[in-house]
């Protein structure tokens, strides 16, 4: 678990359209940040922006949705889906992308990376 000292503000909540993502640049690292609603309310998620199937930095531009309640983002290139909470690929058990801590401080979104 990360310590509070490593939280970095990246944008305001309003910078992300509900049910979509953006990409933040942190020390040369690309992190996809998502703002997604479900029945329980609104959630923030942070994943590595790299699509492991193509090597392209695109996951932040994928469509979000749910598979039987599991929130996911689908790669815009070849449509593999990744669990937003765990980073696990829903279409290939051997593949997983890194996840990061993310929180809302007032109107600011902060990432722990």
């Amino acid at each position: 678990m990360t310590t509070t000292s490593s939280w970095t503000p990246v944008c305001r909540l309003a910078d992300i359209v509900p049910d979509s993502g953006v990409c933040a640049l942190l020390d040369g690292r690309q992190i996809a940040v998502f703002r997604v609603r479900d029945a329980a309310g609104e959630h923030l998620f942070a994943l590595d922006n790299r699509d492991p199937f193509t090597g392209a930095m695109v996951l932040s531009r994928g469509l979000v949705g749910d598979k039987s309640g599991t929130l996911f983002v689908a790669s815009p290139l070849l449509k593999q889906r990744f669990d937003l909470r765990t980073g696990a690929c829903l279409d290939d058990a051997a593949v997983r992308v890194a996840t990061y801590g993310v929180r809302l401080q007032g109107e600011r979104i902060e990432i722990a990376a």
Binding site: V17, P18, D19, S20, T54, A56, M57, V58, R61, G62, L63, V64, P76, L77
Partner: peptide
């Protein structure tokens, strides 16, 4: 439109055709 943006596949979302390198 904000209500429609989260529905658009990457091509429509950026009004251009995504290529293999993003």
């Amino acid at each position: 439109e904000p209500a429609h943006l989260p529905l658009q596949d990457s091509n429509d979302r950026f009004l251009a055709n995504i290529q293999r390198d993003g």
